[in-house]
Design a protein around this nucleic acid. Structure first.
Lengths: 211, 211
DNA sequence: CCTAATCTAGAATAATATTCTAGTTTTGGA
DNA sequence: TCCAAAACTAGAATATTATTCTAGATTAGG
């Protein structure tokens, strides 16, 4: 496979440039010309690597999600032995940390992905995502069996865990609230645990909801 | 102010058509020509009313948020006398109900708004939203004073309350989970209450009922 | 050192948003 | 009733921008 190195570098430059331009102007107002200029690449190069404008966005989206998911998963594997509370903390905390470390990337994924699910890649994205979420759910269900997590409709766990953190991050990115501090992080983890966790005193032998 | 009736009808037709086209193809791939055709309007008419494509999206966004907010607020005013638990139920329940009743509109607002905050209207939107959220927070803070809601950093309440429901609705719109049932609705309200509410037994002395 | 694949370039093209000019309809007041 | 101004509609002309196409440069392996 010839001509690889030059290409991969160029590819990365284009992605970086595109993320900057997207952040500055929004996806809709980002022109291919601007991306070419910033990346020092030609039109042909961009189209060779990504096919079209949506292709650039799709690559950014895909790569970001993958990185984030991998971190979440390896965190979970470590926490799996520690217990349910720790797993919840990993799920919420990893998400927030990743967004804090990659704010532009996170902004793009959370605020701008927009039309990606309509494009031709949409179906593939959806199924990849489904798989990943199934894996996460799988981890959680073990704790439900063990009575450490409350029994709820399966599809509710991820919204309950990630919803508040995701909304807070979005609000931060929109400039409505200050950047999350460790105190916020702890409070959001605590809230997630209240939503799905079973307190020690509540479990006598068998799992069951309270009140 | 002359020429009003004809114009307002036309305006509404264009908005309806645009919402349909946006839903079908996504905002990015929606062409003005398609909207004109569906609405039975001319290009000139569309630009007279909305200025540009983003103007159409902005109008849809603004009108939808206003309608939704008004419902939430009037619900809150009713519940204010009943208590904190009821207010939480109104905040979460009204959001879900509105989305169920206006799925296309909600899909547009939640999934597609994308670049609106970059446009020239962006700053105005942001400040209008800030005002509204401040009003909601104001309602909640009264309950914090009264000891019915836990004391938390102020900016956390709305993410805690709306986050899970919003994520669930998004997942539904993306086809990942089934439409919310009354059971889901109740569970999400319950989770919101767990996150921010103070249980009776936890409160020392001071008065107030719950549930 | 040759060949095929990869990659780069930028002009040519096509699609689409937006502007502009020329009307038509409605309204409120003289 | 009739007039002028404002609101509105229409669609051709223009401008912007994405995308395609052709030609050529570069690289890796045989």
């Amino acid at each position: 496979m010839p001509g690889q190195f030059r290409g991969q570098v160029r590819r990365r430059r284009i992605l970086e440039a595109a993320l900057e331009i997207f952040t500055e102007r929004g996806v809709a107002d980002a022109t291919i010309a601007a991306i070419c200029e910033r990346a020092g690449a030609s039109i042909g190069s961009v189209y060779h690597h990504f096919g079209n404008k949506e292709g650039i966005a799709a690559a950014l989206y895909e790569q970001g999600l993958e990185e984030h998911f991998d971190r979440m998963l390896s965190g979970l594997e470590g926490a799996g032995r520690t217990g349910a509370r720790e797993s919840v903390a990993v799920l919420v905390g990893t998400f927030m940390d990743w967004c804090l470390e990659n704010p532009e990337w996170a902004r793009f994924i959370l605020l701008m992905r927009s039309g990606l699910m309509h494009g031709p890649e949409g179906e593939r994205f959806a199924s990849v995502n489904r798989e990943r979420l199934d894996i996460l759910r799988g981890y959680l269900m073990r704790f439900v069996q063990g009575g450490e997590l409350r029994a709820l409709p399966e599809e509710l766990y991820l919204p309950l865990l990630h919803g508040p953190a995701q909304l807070y991050i979005r609000a931060w990115m929109a400039g409505r609230v200050p950047a999350p501090t460790p105190a916020h992080r702890a409070a959001l983890i605590d809230a997630a645990w209240r939503a799905v966790g079973v307190e020690d005193r509540e479990r006598g032998g068998s799992a069951s909801p309270r009140r």
